[in-house]
């Protein structure tokens, strides 16, 4: 105010425009950083989904590899949507995809006895679960799931049955 009273100039419109342009340029650069941060967050979420799927795969492998006998699918080159087998404690166990798109493991003995561990959700948002038994002691499977953004993830794995002496065709 005093400067203006004394006849001194303040900031001209051109100067303000130049400052605004510089500010906008740097804001644009800063937005780029937020873009990368957002992308990083998306990848984290997908990583989380894939790790869940990997855990599901490990659970399938652990349960199946020491199973005593596979009851279903039969030995063939066809794919089926569930695996029915007797585990190492000779309990009836089934892997299947239910109507809510959850990949589940049901231990029939425990389920019948009302135990909580009788029913386990292995993976959510499962689009497809396919199992194939090309040989008596080998089960190949793949699980296809989607994440929140409908991006699909697939894990393809195989299990070699370890209790081969008791595992008949």
């Amino acid at each position: 105010m005093l400067d203006m009273i004394n006849g001194k100039k303040g900031v001209t419109i051109v100067e303000i425009c130049v400052y605004a342009v510089i500010f906008a340029m740097f804001m644009g650069m800063a937005t780029g950083v937020f873009f990368w941060a957002k992308k990083s967050l998306d990848v984290t979420k997908r990583t989380d989904d894939l790790q869940d799927l990997r855990v599901a795969s490990t659970q399938i492998n652990t349960e199946l590899s020491y199973g005593n006998r596979v009851l279903f699918p039969p030995v063939s080159n066809r794919s089926f949507s569930q695996i029915l087998f007797m585990n190492d404690r000779n309990e009836l166990v089934v892997f299947f995809r239910d109507e809510d798109a959850k990949l589940k493991l049901i231990n029939y003995e425990k389920f019948k006895a009302g135990e909580k561990s009788g029913e386990r959700v292995i993976a959510r948002n499962t689009i497809e679960f396919q199992a194939e038994r090309p040989d008596a002691n080998l089960i190949k499977y793949f699980v296809r799931i989607t994440d929140e953004k409908n991006v699909e993830h697939v894990i393809a794995n195989a299990v070699k049955m370890r209790n081969t002496e008791t595992n008949g065709p």
Binding site: L50, Q51, L53, R54, S57, N61, D135, N137, L138, K140, H153, V154, I155, A156, N157, A158, V159, K160
Partner: peptide
């Protein structure tokens, strides 16, 4: 990593069989 590891496991299990 989980995708590639699963595929590698699958190959190894198939070879073992």
């Amino acid at each position: 990593f989980p995708v590639t590891l699963s595929i590698a496991e699958r190959i190894l299990m198939t070879i073992e069989n």
